[in-house]
Design a protein around this nucleic acid. Sequence first.
DNA 1: TTTAATCTTGATCGATTGGTCAAACTTGTC
DNA 2: GACAAGTTTGACCAATCGATCAAGATTAAA
Lengths: 211, 211
Amino acid sequence: MAAVTGETPRTRIQQENRERILKAALDMFSRTGYRGTTLDQIAAAAGMSKPNMLYYFRTKEELYRSVLQETLEDWLTPFAKLDPDGDPSAELGAYISAKLAHARINPKASRLFANEILQGAPLLEKTLKGRLKDLVEEKSKAIRAWIAAGKMVPIEPLHLIYMIWAATQHYADFETQMDALEGTEPGTREKRFENAERTLFTVLFNGLKPR
Amino acid sequence: MAAVTGETPRTRIQQENRERILKAALDMFSRTGYRGTTLDQIAAAAGMSKPNMLYYFRTKEELYRSVLQETLEDWLTPFAKLDPDGDPSAELGAYISAKLAHARINPKASRLFANEILQGAPLLEKTLKGRLKDLVEEKSKAIRAWIAAGKMVPIEPLHLIYMIWAATQHYADFETQMDALEGTEPGTREKRFENAERTLFTVLFNGLKPR
DNA sequence: TTTAATCTTGATCGATTGGTCAAACTTGTC
DNA sequence: GACAAGTTTGACCAATCGATCAAGATTAAA
Protein backbone atom coordinates (compact mmCIF):
# COMPACT_ATOMS: atom_id res chain seq x y z
CA MET A 1 0.00 0.00 0.00
CA ALA A 2 3.03 2.26 0.03
CA ALA A 3 2.16 3.63 -3.38
CA VAL A 4 -1.17 4.84 -2.10
CA THR A 5 -0.09 6.66 1.02
CA GLY A 6 3.66 7.25 0.81
CA GLU A 7 6.00 9.56 -1.07
CA THR A 8 5.78 7.58 -4.30
CA PRO A 9 4.00 9.48 -7.04
CA ARG A 10 0.47 8.40 -7.69
CA THR A 11 -0.35 6.51 -10.84
CA ARG A 12 -2.65 7.91 -13.46
CA ILE A 13 -5.49 5.66 -12.31
CA GLN A 14 -4.96 6.52 -8.69
CA GLN A 15 -5.17 10.23 -9.38
CA GLU A 16 -8.28 9.86 -11.46
CA ASN A 17 -10.05 7.51 -9.11
CA ARG A 18 -9.19 9.41 -5.96
CA GLU A 19 -10.62 12.58 -7.47
CA ARG A 20 -13.77 10.76 -8.50
CA ILE A 21 -14.20 9.29 -5.05
CA LEU A 22 -13.56 12.57 -3.25
CA LYS A 23 -16.12 14.34 -5.39
CA ALA A 24 -18.72 11.63 -4.85
CA ALA A 25 -17.99 11.63 -1.15
CA LEU A 26 -18.46 15.38 -0.92
CA ASP A 27 -21.78 15.08 -2.73
CA MET A 28 -23.01 12.47 -0.31
CA PHE A 29 -21.49 13.51 3.01
CA SER A 30 -22.65 17.10 2.52
CA ARG A 31 -26.24 15.91 2.48
CA THR A 32 -26.50 13.23 5.12
CA GLY A 33 -23.31 13.68 7.13
CA TYR A 34 -20.82 11.04 8.17
CA ARG A 35 -23.10 8.57 9.92
CA GLY A 36 -26.02 8.99 7.59
CA THR A 37 -24.06 8.26 4.42
CA THR A 38 -23.17 4.72 3.35
CA LEU A 39 -20.09 3.56 1.51
CA ASP A 40 -22.29 1.90 -1.09
CA GLN A 41 -23.89 5.25 -1.90
CA ILE A 42 -20.54 6.95 -2.38
CA ALA A 43 -19.19 4.08 -4.44
CA ALA A 44 -22.24 4.15 -6.69
CA ALA A 45 -21.89 7.91 -7.14
CA ALA A 46 -18.22 7.41 -7.99
CA GLY A 47 -19.14 4.72 -10.49
CA MET A 48 -17.22 1.86 -8.92
CA SER A 49 -17.65 -1.00 -6.49
CA LYS A 50 -17.29 -0.53 -2.76
CA PRO A 51 -14.20 -2.79 -2.43
CA ASN A 52 -12.63 -0.88 -5.30
CA MET A 53 -13.20 2.36 -3.52
CA LEU A 54 -11.77 0.88 -0.32
CA TYR A 55 -8.63 0.05 -2.26
CA TYR A 56 -7.99 3.81 -2.42
CA PHE A 57 -9.37 4.89 0.95
CA ARG A 58 -8.95 2.23 3.57
CA THR A 59 -11.88 3.22 5.78
CA LYS A 60 -14.94 5.42 5.76
CA GLU A 61 -13.31 7.69 8.30
CA GLU A 62 -10.18 8.14 6.20
CA LEU A 63 -12.34 9.18 3.28
CA TYR A 64 -14.37 11.57 5.36
CA ARG A 65 -11.27 13.17 6.85
CA SER A 66 -9.80 13.72 3.40
CA VAL A 67 -12.92 15.41 2.10
CA LEU A 68 -13.27 17.51 5.22
CA GLN A 69 -9.63 18.61 5.09
CA GLU A 70 -10.07 19.95 1.59
CA THR A 71 -13.22 21.81 2.43
CA LEU A 72 -11.61 23.37 5.47
CA GLU A 73 -8.79 24.83 3.43
CA ASP A 74 -11.35 26.34 1.06
CA TRP A 75 -13.09 27.85 4.05
CA LEU A 76 -10.05 29.36 5.70
CA THR A 77 -8.28 30.81 2.68
CA PRO A 78 -10.50 33.80 1.88
CA PHE A 79 -10.65 34.77 5.54
CA ALA A 80 -6.88 34.74 5.86
CA LYS A 81 -6.71 37.19 2.96
CA LEU A 82 -8.55 39.95 4.79
CA ASP A 83 -5.92 42.70 4.93
CA PRO A 84 -5.85 44.77 8.14
CA ASP A 85 -4.01 47.58 6.36
CA GLY A 86 -6.62 47.93 3.69
CA ASP A 87 -9.81 49.94 3.54
CA PRO A 88 -12.79 48.37 5.36
CA SER A 89 -15.16 48.65 2.42
CA ALA A 90 -12.66 47.17 0.02
CA GLU A 91 -11.54 44.41 2.33
CA LEU A 92 -14.94 43.39 3.61
CA GLY A 93 -16.37 43.73 0.13
CA ALA A 94 -13.75 41.43 -1.26
CA TYR A 95 -14.30 38.92 1.51
CA ILE A 96 -18.06 38.95 1.09
CA SER A 97 -17.71 38.51 -2.65
CA ALA A 98 -15.30 35.64 -2.18
CA LYS A 99 -17.64 33.94 0.29
CA LEU A 100 -20.63 34.37 -1.99
CA ALA A 101 -18.65 33.03 -4.91
CA HIS A 102 -17.76 30.01 -2.84
CA ALA A 103 -21.40 29.53 -1.89
CA ARG A 104 -22.31 29.68 -5.54
CA ILE A 105 -19.52 27.56 -7.00
CA ASN A 106 -19.12 24.97 -4.28
CA PRO A 107 -22.24 24.89 -2.11
CA LYS A 108 -21.59 21.32 -1.11
CA ALA A 109 -18.35 22.21 0.61
CA SER A 110 -20.19 24.76 2.67
CA ARG A 111 -22.85 22.22 3.49
CA LEU A 112 -20.28 19.64 4.51
CA PHE A 113 -18.81 22.17 6.90
CA ALA A 114 -22.25 23.00 8.28
CA ASN A 115 -23.02 19.33 8.68
CA GLU A 116 -19.81 18.72 10.60
CA ILE A 117 -20.56 21.66 12.91
CA LEU A 118 -24.12 20.43 13.51
CA GLN A 119 -22.66 17.09 14.53
CA GLY A 120 -20.58 18.80 17.17
CA ALA A 121 -17.49 19.09 14.95
CA PRO A 122 -15.69 16.09 16.41
CA LEU A 123 -12.94 16.30 13.79
CA LEU A 124 -12.60 20.06 13.72
CA GLU A 125 -12.07 20.96 17.33
CA LYS A 126 -8.33 21.37 17.00
CA THR A 127 -8.61 23.64 13.96
CA LEU A 128 -11.47 25.68 15.39
CA LYS A 129 -9.60 26.35 18.62
CA GLY A 130 -6.27 26.79 16.86
CA ARG A 131 -5.93 28.23 13.38
CA LEU A 132 -9.42 29.67 13.14
CA LYS A 133 -9.31 31.21 16.56
CA ASP A 134 -5.99 32.84 15.75
CA LEU A 135 -7.34 34.19 12.47
CA VAL A 136 -10.45 35.51 14.18
CA GLU A 137 -8.37 37.33 16.75
CA GLU A 138 -6.17 38.81 14.07
CA LYS A 139 -9.12 40.07 12.01
CA SER A 140 -10.93 41.33 15.11
CA LYS A 141 -7.91 43.45 15.90
CA ALA A 142 -8.06 44.89 12.39
CA ILE A 143 -11.73 45.70 12.76
CA ARG A 144 -11.08 47.40 16.08
CA ALA A 145 -8.42 49.53 14.40
CA TRP A 146 -10.91 50.53 11.71
CA ILE A 147 -13.39 51.48 14.37
CA ALA A 148 -10.78 53.49 16.28
CA ALA A 149 -9.87 55.32 13.08
CA GLY A 150 -13.51 56.34 12.72
CA LYS A 151 -13.94 54.29 9.56
CA MET A 152 -16.66 52.13 11.08
CA VAL A 153 -19.37 52.35 13.71
CA PRO A 154 -18.45 50.79 17.07
CA ILE A 155 -19.50 47.15 17.11
CA GLU A 156 -18.22 43.86 18.36
CA PRO A 157 -15.81 42.60 15.69
CA LEU A 158 -16.50 38.96 16.44
CA HIS A 159 -20.18 39.44 15.79
CA LEU A 160 -19.61 41.27 12.54
CA ILE A 161 -17.55 38.30 11.46
CA TYR A 162 -20.34 35.93 12.46
CA MET A 163 -22.80 38.06 10.57
CA ILE A 164 -20.77 37.88 7.38
CA TRP A 165 -20.26 34.13 7.72
CA ALA A 166 -23.95 33.61 8.36
CA ALA A 167 -25.20 35.83 5.56
CA THR A 168 -22.93 34.33 2.93
CA GLN A 169 -22.91 30.65 3.87
CA HIS A 170 -26.69 30.69 4.15
CA TYR A 171 -26.91 30.85 0.35
CA ALA A 172 -25.23 27.47 0.15
CA ASP A 173 -26.54 25.81 3.27
CA PHE A 174 -30.20 26.73 2.80
CA GLU A 175 -30.23 26.46 -0.97
CA THR A 176 -33.06 23.93 -0.79
CA GLN A 177 -35.25 26.41 1.07
CA MET A 178 -34.39 29.18 -1.36
CA ASP A 179 -35.12 26.98 -4.35
CA ALA A 180 -38.51 26.15 -2.87
CA LEU A 181 -39.32 29.83 -2.32
CA GLU A 182 -37.97 31.16 -5.60
CA GLY A 183 -38.45 28.27 -7.98
CA THR A 184 -35.74 26.67 -10.08
CA GLU A 185 -36.28 28.20 -13.51
CA PRO A 186 -33.11 28.85 -15.52
CA GLY A 187 -31.35 31.95 -14.33
CA THR A 188 -32.97 32.02 -10.90
CA ARG A 189 -29.83 31.05 -9.02
CA GLU A 190 -27.62 33.50 -10.90
CA LYS A 191 -30.05 36.29 -10.19
CA ARG A 192 -30.16 35.19 -6.56
CA PHE A 193 -26.44 35.73 -6.13
CA GLU A 194 -26.53 39.12 -7.83
CA ASN A 195 -29.26 40.19 -5.46
CA ALA A 196 -27.42 38.66 -2.55
CA GLU A 197 -24.29 40.68 -3.20
CA ARG A 198 -26.20 43.88 -3.78
CA THR A 199 -28.24 43.48 -0.62
CA LEU A 200 -25.32 42.52 1.59
CA PHE A 201 -23.25 45.41 0.28
CA THR A 202 -26.09 47.88 0.78
CA VAL A 203 -27.05 46.82 4.27
CA LEU A 204 -23.61 46.05 5.60
CA PHE A 205 -21.78 49.04 4.16
CA ASN A 206 -24.55 51.47 5.01
CA GLY A 207 -24.80 49.85 8.41
CA LEU A 208 -21.12 50.05 9.17
CA LYS A 209 -20.61 53.56 7.92
CA PRO A 210 -20.73 56.24 10.61
CA ARG A 211 -23.45 58.84 10.30
CA MET B 1 -53.75 1.47 19.48
CA ALA B 2 -56.69 3.84 19.32
CA ALA B 3 -55.67 5.42 22.60
CA VAL B 4 -52.35 6.43 21.13
CA THR B 5 -53.41 8.00 17.86
CA GLY B 6 -57.14 8.69 18.01
CA GLU B 7 -59.45 11.10 19.76
CA THR B 8 -59.30 9.28 23.06
CA PRO B 9 -57.48 11.26 25.71
CA ARG B 10 -53.97 10.18 26.44
CA THR B 11 -53.18 8.48 29.71
CA ARG B 12 -50.85 10.03 32.22
CA ILE B 13 -48.07 7.65 31.23
CA GLN B 14 -48.62 8.25 27.54
CA GLN B 15 -48.32 12.01 27.94
CA GLU B 16 -45.19 11.74 30.04
CA ASN B 17 -43.52 9.20 27.87
CA ARG B 18 -44.33 10.87 24.60
CA GLU B 19 -42.82 14.12 25.86
CA ARG B 20 -39.72 12.30 27.01
CA ILE B 21 -39.32 10.57 23.69
CA LEU B 22 -39.91 13.73 21.66
CA LYS B 23 -37.31 15.61 23.65
CA ALA B 24 -34.76 12.81 23.33
CA ALA B 25 -35.49 12.55 19.63
CA LEU B 26 -34.95 16.27 19.13
CA ASP B 27 -31.63 16.05 20.95
CA MET B 28 -30.46 13.24 18.73
CA PHE B 29 -31.96 14.07 15.35
CA SER B 30 -30.73 17.65 15.57
CA ARG B 31 -27.15 16.40 15.69
CA THR B 32 -26.95 13.52 13.27
CA GLY B 33 -30.13 13.88 11.24
CA TYR B 34 -32.66 11.21 10.37
CA ARG B 35 -30.43 8.56 8.82
CA GLY B 36 -27.50 9.12 11.13
CA THR B 37 -29.47 8.66 14.33
CA THR B 38 -30.46 5.24 15.66
CA LEU B 39 -33.56 4.27 17.55
CA ASP B 40 -31.39 2.77 20.29
CA GLN B 41 -29.72 6.14 20.83
CA ILE B 42 -33.03 7.92 21.19
CA ALA B 43 -34.45 5.25 23.46
CA ALA B 44 -31.39 5.41 25.69
CA ALA B 45 -31.66 9.20 25.87
CA ALA B 46 -35.34 8.85 26.76
CA GLY B 47 -34.47 6.33 29.45
CA MET B 48 -36.45 3.40 28.09
CA SER B 49 -36.11 0.36 25.89
CA LYS B 50 -36.45 0.56 22.13
CA PRO B 51 -39.58 -1.64 21.95
CA ASN B 52 -41.11 0.50 24.67
CA MET B 53 -40.45 3.59 22.66
CA LEU B 54 -41.92 1.92 19.58
CA TYR B 55 -45.07 1.27 21.57
CA TYR B 56 -45.65 5.05 21.44
CA PHE B 57 -44.23 5.86 18.01
CA ARG B 58 -44.69 3.01 15.58
CA THR B 59 -41.74 3.78 13.33
CA LYS B 60 -38.63 5.92 13.18
CA GLU B 61 -40.24 8.03 10.50
CA GLU B 62 -43.36 8.68 12.54
CA LEU B 63 -41.18 9.90 15.38
CA TYR B 64 -39.09 12.09 13.13
CA ARG B 65 -42.17 13.62 11.53
CA SER B 66 -43.63 14.45 14.93
CA VAL B 67 -40.47 16.19 16.10
CA LEU B 68 -40.09 18.04 12.84
CA GLN B 69 -43.72 19.21 12.87
CA GLU B 70 -43.25 20.80 16.28
CA THR B 71 -40.07 22.54 15.28
CA LEU B 72 -41.65 23.91 12.15
CA GLU B 73 -44.45 25.57 14.09
CA ASP B 74 -41.85 27.19 16.33
CA TRP B 75 -40.07 28.44 13.23
CA LEU B 76 -43.08 29.89 11.47
CA THR B 77 -44.83 31.58 14.38
CA PRO B 78 -42.55 34.58 14.96
CA PHE B 79 -42.41 35.27 11.22
CA ALA B 80 -46.17 35.28 10.91
CA LYS B 81 -46.29 37.95 13.62
CA LEU B 82 -44.40 40.54 11.60
CA ASP B 83 -46.98 43.32 11.26
CA PRO B 84 -47.02 45.15 7.89
CA ASP B 85 -48.80 48.11 9.46
CA GLY B 86 -46.16 48.58 12.11
CA ASP B 87 -42.96 50.55 12.10
CA PRO B 88 -40.01 48.82 10.40
CA SER B 89 -37.63 49.26 13.32
CA ALA B 90 -40.17 48.02 15.81
CA GLU B 91 -41.34 45.10 13.70
CA LEU B 92 -37.95 43.94 12.52
CA GLY B 93 -36.51 44.53 15.97
CA ALA B 94 -39.17 42.36 17.52
CA TYR B 95 -38.67 39.65 14.93
CA ILE B 96 -34.91 39.63 15.36
CA SER B 97 -35.28 39.48 19.12
CA ALA B 98 -37.74 36.62 18.87
CA LYS B 99 -35.43 34.71 16.53
CA LEU B 100 -32.42 35.24 18.78
CA ALA B 101 -34.43 34.16 21.79
CA HIS B 102 -35.38 31.01 19.95
CA ALA B 103 -31.75 30.39 19.04
CA ARG B 104 -30.81 30.79 22.68
CA ILE B 105 -33.64 28.84 24.28
CA ASN B 106 -34.10 26.07 21.77
CA PRO B 107 -30.99 25.77 19.60
CA LYS B 108 -31.71 22.15 18.87
CA ALA B 109 -34.93 22.96 17.09
CA SER B 110 -33.03 25.33 14.84
CA ARG B 111 -30.43 22.69 14.22
CA LEU B 112 -33.05 20.08 13.38
CA PHE B 113 -34.47 22.45 10.81
CA ALA B 114 -31.02 23.12 9.38
CA ASN B 115 -30.33 19.41 9.25
CA GLU B 116 -33.56 18.74 7.38
CA ILE B 117 -32.73 21.47 4.88
CA LEU B 118 -29.21 20.15 4.36
CA GLN B 119 -30.73 16.77 3.59
CA GLY B 120 -32.79 18.31 0.84
CA ALA B 121 -35.86 18.83 3.01
CA PRO B 122 -37.73 15.77 1.77
CA LEU B 123 -40.46 16.21 4.37
CA LEU B 124 -40.72 19.98 4.19
CA GLU B 125 -41.24 20.62 0.52
CA LYS B 126 -44.98 21.12 0.82
CA THR B 127 -44.66 23.61 3.65
CA LEU B 128 -41.76 25.47 2.08
CA LYS B 129 -43.62 25.93 -1.18
CA GLY B 130 -46.94 26.57 0.55
CA ARG B 131 -47.24 28.26 3.90
CA LEU B 132 -43.72 29.65 4.04
CA LYS B 133 -43.80 30.94 0.51
CA ASP B 134 -47.11 32.68 1.20
CA LEU B 135 -45.72 34.25 4.36
CA VAL B 136 -42.59 35.38 2.57
CA GLU B 137 -44.65 37.05 -0.15
CA GLU B 138 -46.83 38.76 2.42
CA LYS B 139 -43.85 40.11 4.38
CA SER B 140 -42.02 41.11 1.21
CA LYS B 141 -45.00 43.22 0.25
CA ALA B 142 -44.82 44.92 3.65
CA ILE B 143 -41.12 45.61 3.21
CA ARG B 144 -41.76 47.08 -0.22
CA ALA B 145 -44.37 49.39 1.29
CA TRP B 146 -41.87 50.53 3.90
CA ILE B 147 -39.36 51.24 1.18
CA ALA B 148 -41.94 53.14 -0.89
CA ALA B 149 -42.82 55.24 2.16
CA GLY B 150 -39.17 56.21 2.46
CA LYS B 151 -38.76 54.39 5.76
CA MET B 152 -36.09 52.08 4.40
CA VAL B 153 -33.38 52.06 1.77
CA PRO B 154 -34.34 50.27 -1.45
CA ILE B 155 -33.34 46.63 -1.24
CA GLU B 156 -34.67 43.25 -2.24
CA PRO B 157 -37.11 42.22 0.53
CA LEU B 158 -36.48 38.54 0.06
CA HIS B 159 -32.79 39.00 0.67
CA LEU B 160 -33.32 41.07 3.77
CA ILE B 161 -35.44 38.23 5.07
CA TYR B 162 -32.68 35.73 4.25
CA MET B 163 -30.19 37.95 5.99
CA ILE B 164 -32.22 38.04 9.17
CA TRP B 165 -32.79 34.29 9.12
CA ALA B 166 -29.11 33.66 8.52
CA ALA B 167 -27.81 36.05 11.15
CA THR B 168 -30.12 34.78 13.88
CA GLN B 169 -30.21 31.05 13.21
CA HIS B 170 -26.44 31.00 12.94
CA TYR B 171 -26.21 31.45 16.71
CA ALA B 172 -27.96 28.12 17.17
CA ASP B 173 -26.68 26.20 14.18
CA PHE B 174 -23.01 27.08 14.58
CA GLU B 175 -22.97 27.10 18.35
CA THR B 176 -20.19 24.51 18.35
CA GLN B 177 -17.95 26.82 16.35
CA MET B 178 -18.75 29.78 18.56
CA ASP B 179 -18.08 27.79 21.70
CA ALA B 180 -14.71 26.79 20.27
CA LEU B 181 -13.83 30.40 19.46
CA GLU B 182 -15.13 31.98 22.63
CA GLY B 183 -14.73 29.27 25.22
CA THR B 184 -17.46 27.89 27.42
CA GLU B 185 -16.91 29.65 30.75
CA PRO B 186 -20.05 30.50 32.69
CA GLY B 187 -21.75 33.56 31.27
CA THR B 188 -20.13 33.34 27.84
CA ARG B 189 -23.29 32.29 26.05
CA GLU B 190 -25.46 34.91 27.75
CA LYS B 191 -22.95 37.59 26.82
CA ARG B 192 -22.89 36.23 23.29
CA PHE B 193 -26.58 36.81 22.82
CA GLU B 194 -26.44 40.31 24.26
CA ASN B 195 -23.69 41.16 21.79
CA ALA B 196 -25.57 39.44 19.00
CA GLU B 197 -28.65 41.54 19.51
CA ARG B 198 -26.68 44.75 19.86
CA THR B 199 -24.65 44.09 16.74
CA LEU B 200 -27.58 43.02 14.61
CA PHE B 201 -29.61 46.03 15.69
CA THR B 202 -26.73 48.40 15.02
CA VAL B 203 -25.79 47.09 11.61
CA LEU B 204 -29.25 46.28 10.34
CA PHE B 205 -31.02 49.40 11.56
CA ASN B 206 -28.22 51.69 10.53
CA GLY B 207 -27.99 49.84 7.27
CA LEU B 208 -31.67 50.04 6.47
CA LYS B 209 -32.11 53.66 7.47
CA PRO B 210 -31.95 56.14 4.60
CA ARG B 211 -29.17 58.72 4.72
C1' DT C 1 5.71 -10.18 -25.80
C1' DT C 2 6.56 -11.08 -21.04
C1' DT C 3 6.23 -10.08 -16.44
C1' DA C 4 5.41 -7.50 -12.45
C1' DA C 5 2.52 -4.21 -10.44
C1' DT C 6 -1.80 -2.40 -10.02
C1' DC C 7 -6.66 -2.50 -10.12
C1' DT C 8 -11.35 -4.56 -9.80
C1' DT C 9 -14.98 -7.15 -7.70
C1' DG C 10 -18.14 -11.26 -6.18
C1' DA C 11 -18.47 -13.58 -2.18
C1' DT C 12 -18.27 -13.47 2.51
C1' DC C 13 -18.15 -11.87 7.41
C1' DG C 14 -19.47 -9.99 12.06
C1' DA C 15 -21.82 -6.17 13.85
C1' DT C 16 -25.55 -3.05 13.67
C1' DT C 17 -30.21 -1.45 12.65
C1' DG C 18 -35.35 -0.89 12.41
C1' DG C 19 -38.59 -3.65 13.70
C1' DT C 20 -41.84 -7.65 15.83
C1' DC C 21 -43.84 -10.50 19.42
C1' DA C 22 -45.51 -12.59 23.46
C1' DA C 23 -45.04 -12.89 28.27
C1' DA C 24 -44.58 -10.49 32.44
C1' DC C 25 -45.39 -6.48 34.97
C1' DT C 26 -47.91 -2.13 36.24
C1' DT C 27 -51.75 0.94 36.39
C1' DG C 28 -56.55 2.27 36.39
C1' DT C 29 -61.36 1.34 37.35
C1' DC C 30 -65.16 -0.56 39.71
C1' DG D 1 -59.37 -6.90 45.88
C1' DA D 2 -60.43 -8.42 41.20
C1' DC D 3 -59.93 -7.74 36.66
C1' DA D 4 -59.23 -5.31 32.40
C1' DA D 5 -56.37 -2.21 30.14
C1' DG D 6 -52.09 -0.41 29.53
C1' DT D 7 -47.05 -0.70 29.62
C1' DT D 8 -42.50 -2.79 29.45
C1' DT D 9 -38.89 -5.62 27.57
C1' DG D 10 -35.80 -9.87 26.39
C1' DA D 11 -35.46 -12.54 22.61
C1' DC D 12 -35.61 -12.74 18.00
C1' DC D 13 -35.67 -11.50 12.88
C1' DA D 14 -34.33 -9.93 8.10
C1' DA D 15 -31.86 -6.44 6.04
C1' DT D 16 -28.14 -3.33 6.00
C1' DC D 17 -23.53 -1.75 6.89
C1' DG D 18 -18.33 -1.25 7.03
C1' DA D 19 -15.08 -4.05 5.93
C1' DT D 20 -11.98 -8.28 4.16
C1' DC D 21 -10.06 -11.43 0.80
C1' DA D 22 -8.49 -13.90 -3.04
C1' DA D 23 -8.86 -14.54 -7.84
C1' DG D 24 -9.17 -12.56 -12.16
C1' DA D 25 -8.52 -8.54 -15.16
C1' DT D 26 -5.95 -4.53 -16.58
C1' DT D 27 -2.03 -1.51 -16.91
C1' DA D 28 2.76 -0.25 -16.95
C1' DA D 29 7.46 -1.16 -17.80
C1' DA D 30 11.20 -3.56 -19.85
